[in-house]
Write a protein that binds this DNA or RNA. Structure first.
Lengths: 148, 148
DNA sequence: AATGATAATGAAAAACATTTTCAATAAGGA
DNA sequence: TCCTTATTGAAAATGTTTTTCATTATCATT
């Protein structure tokens, strides 16, 4: 649970208060290994903090996002899921069926980025590399009709 | 305008009808070099087809998207812009200020993908590589990167 | 421990974005 | 030209996110 503490300390350093709803959301996001929508977070967090409001989930995800601890996940069927942010040069590998997340590193895009920068005249600010696939658990079900 | 014809032919082959609203939207998307929201498309397309409804824009973008001709653009401040889809192994370079799009190629992620696939157990379906930056027009002059 | 300033909360309402419904229209084969 | 049916626009519905505001709770200061 050391990671939870770290997130809460960062929140505090930024001038935020540590509250019940925030603790519940942080605990949940720290250990989430599947992308979660605000409503997913809301539902799960209410078991720890039943008075939780959905608005607080939105607000807390925004703060965690500003702190770089959480990131919105981009998927072909929408972009309203959240996940622990990638650290350093990690990139996301995500299951397009169940949202299971894995992180990988090992690419080196710096040469490419330098080249594109000078060819295009753009000042490159960030890059985004993500792999979509089907995780092991979902593979036997690959040919089933997707859940609606 | 040969590209416009190609899009319309693909639409027709798919069993769709070629209509005024669709022609207006296709012409616009073919030559768009900035990411456009459905409302942007709506506004621009109405100059060619004043009766255009916003719903038709949504529907047409969806069809063009199914045909692989148009793609939703993912940006940190939202994912409701559209752009001509990348062809083949092209990837998108987008200005985070004005939405100006450029495409690049020259990466080879296949080795990385094979490695991640076997390490993670995921069956990799697709990959997304995108660079975010500031285009030349949006840069303060003193920071401009000269094009080579 | 009690106090007080104010940050954070939840509920309701508002603001957006997108989709569905449906009657009227128009595309394009017969 | 006719006829079938895909397409359209308007309105309503749906879904997501943000704003507003009165109440509550945190935590620095006593």
């Amino acid at each position: 649970m050391i990671e939870t503490e770290r997130w809460l300390e960062l929140l505090e350093e930024k001038g935020g208060r540590i509250t019940g709803p925030r603790k519940a959301i942080v605990e949940l996001m720290v250990k989430a290994d599947h992308a979660l929508s605000p409503v997913d977070v809301f539902d799960q967090a209410r078991s720890k903090y039943p008075k939780m409001g959905l608005v607080t989930v939105y607000r807390t995800l925004e703060i965690l996002s500003e702190l770089g601890l959480v990131e919105r996940v981009h998927q072909q069927d929408g972009c309203h899921m959240y996940l622990r942010a990638a650290n350093g040069h990690e990139h996301l590998l995500i299951c397009s069926r169940c949202g299971k997340a894995a992180y990988f590193s090992g690419d080196d895009l710096s040469v490419l980025i330098d080249r594109i920068s000078s060819e295009s005249g753009f000042v490159i600010q960030s890059h985004w590399l993500q792999l979509q696939g089907i995780c092991q658990k979902c593979q036997p079900k690959k040919f089933q009709t997707p859940i609606e």
